[in-house]
Design a protein around this nucleic acid. Sequence first.
DNA 1: CGCAGGCCCTGGTAGC
DNA 2: TGCTACCAGGGCCTGC
Length: 284
Amino acid sequence: MPELPEVETVRRGLESWVVGRQISAVEVLHPRAIRRHVPGVSDFRNALIGRRVVGACRRGKYLWLPLDSGDAVLAHLGMSGQLLMLEPSAPAGPHLRVRIAFDDDGPELRFVDQRTFGGLSVSIGGADLPPEIAHIARDIFDDRFDEAAFHTALRRRRTGLKRALLDQSLISGVGNIYADEALWRAKLHYARATETMRRPDTTRLLDGVRSVMASALEQGGTSFDSLYVNVNGESGYFDRSLAVYGRRGEPCPRCGTPIRRESFMNRSSYFCPHCQPRPRHPHW
DNA sequence: CGCAGGCCCTGGTAGC
DNA sequence: TGCTACCAGGGCCTGC
């Protein structure tokens, strides 16, 4: 669920809550939460304890906290991960995976994750950009995102448009929800063959991605349930503004045609069959 | 190398 | 009521 707007909301929260503070204790309650940290739990703890957090960064759906050692805490929320700021005395919920406490005895950082797709790791020398995520493309809000290069790379692909949009090495931060919403805004079908995309199509697509994510960010992200929350445990409101996602059978906000749901890539795709007509030569 | 599909995981819900 | 089946899906891995 957490896509760029949700992850950015969390990043902003971390920036105001943990930057400048020194880590005093680390507790790993579920080893799977740090499975990407190959050297293991004690190495993870040793790399953090005594270090100061000097920033809060994001690329796509990845977050990292640069440390004064030059390393970084790299985090991915997966489907259900939460990074919460809570008083050390706050009770541990059933899905608490990692606790990071600070030497000022103020609110601690807790990684809570029901479905355990997310996780934390220490990235050696990763303060500027963790090498583990060097293959992740820049996202639409990155000043150095290159629209022309994206268009060229897109046209080189031999696949369907939504598949390409979800490929984090082409453009990052887009997940299933905002992919459907962006395609609807751009009036493009999810199975449009990427090699048939013309420059105006790509411009419309990126405008759709940018505008839907900017709106979602303003509203603190999208929440369907209590799974996605900011660092204070609060949900966003953008789910009220979704045009197609999760709205099978409901009228398209633009033309009134009932929204259709199709199974694609083992997940749901929602679209308006009138505004987003099936291409003559779709790529499934 | 590019692309497609399987797998990981848990809680909620639909259906019998 | 109590069981099973299915659904949500991001990213890594494998195989073609």
